[in-house]
């Protein structure tokens, strides 16, 4: 995390002369402020921290009692060596872990912990992930849900940092996108089952969608032109349009469309026909 979000003093001073600030990650850095913030003679840290699904789940819990067990999916890792897809799957599996924590489903947490290990082997990052996966499995034995949630957050962070160290920034972004898609599919499912304006408002996330669209746009050609990534880009544009139309309030149809879009993309990521 430290390296990815680093903002160097040298980078800050050089931003006036070059658009490329000297962060350690490809997108780390700052840009001169062009936002609507009034009288702000400063700099925007050009990096986005994507919320974990639990942040939205906690609000849904306050607004009702969603049946999180009903939202859990059966895991079946795709038989592929395609690292782009594996990274997307990794993100979605970690998000599944947050759902399992919300459901307090010990067996699901253990299955997801083992899946995290298998996927990390396929991605060649097992060494970095194993301590977290083991911590998840250990904490599940004592039903220590806060510790499990913390480890899922750490797992995602470690994986993305490891990928960035390996110059796989595009794969790191795929992990984030996969996680966001799975979290959003779960949220729209819960909101769709018991629609209210307050619940639906949680989907007002245009900055995150713009961020993902922007990150895909920066990916190298082979990743950007990957069939699944292209489909995700199309899906994100559909979701963005709904969010733009829903600044006052979401309709049940809008929520349903986001649910179908994210669900369809997750099936594509999983390799289901």
């Amino acid at each position: 995390m430290t390296s990815r979000r680093s903002l160097s003093l040298l980078g800050l001073f050089s931003v006036a002369f070059s658009s490329a600030a000297l962060g350690q990650g490809s997108n780390a850095g700052v840009v001169e402020v062009t936002s609507s913030a009034k009288n702000f003679p400063g700099y925007v840290v050009d990096d986005v921290v994507v919320p974990v699904p639990s942040e939205i789940f906690s609000v849904l819990d306050k607004l009702g009692e969603p049946n999180w067990r009903q939202e859990l999916r059966n895991l079946k890792a795709p038989e592929t060596t395609d690292r782009t897809r594996l990274s997307l799957v990794f993100g979605s599996v970690v998000a599944e872990g947050f759902i399992a924590v919300q459901a307090q489903d010990k067996k699901a947490v253990e299955d997801i912990g083992r899946e995290v290990i298998d996927l990390s082997k396929s991605l060649g990052i097992q060494k970095a992930v194993l301590p977290h996966a083991n911590a998840i499995l250990d904490a599940s034995k004592s039903n220590n849900w806060p510790a499990i949630r913390k480890e899922f957050d750490l797992t995602q962070k470690t994986v993305r940092e490891t990928m960035e160290k390996m110059k796989d920034n595009d794969l790191s972004q795929c992990v984030s996108v996969g996680g966001w898609l799975r979290g959003t599919a779960a949220v729209t499912s819960v909101v769709g089952k018991n629609f209210s304006a307050d619940r639906a408002e949680l989907l007002q996330q245009p900055m995150l969608v713009d961020h993902f669209i922007g990150q895909i746009g920066k990916m190298p050609g082979n990743t950007k032109n990957h069939a699944t990534v292209k489909a995700i880009l199309d899906g994100l544009n559909v979701i963005k349009e709904i969010m733009t139309k829903s600044t006052e309030a979401f309709t049940p149809e809008g929520v349903s469309t986001i649910n179908k879009t994210t669900g369809g993309l997750l099936e594509l990521i999983d390799g289901k026909p």
Binding site: R5, L9, G42
Partner: peptide
Amino acid sequence: EDYWNGEVKSGQKLMVKHQ
């Protein structure tokens, strides 16, 4: 677990955008 960090000129205002 995610956070922002860095080094900056003293007094310089910085801004992060967050959901």
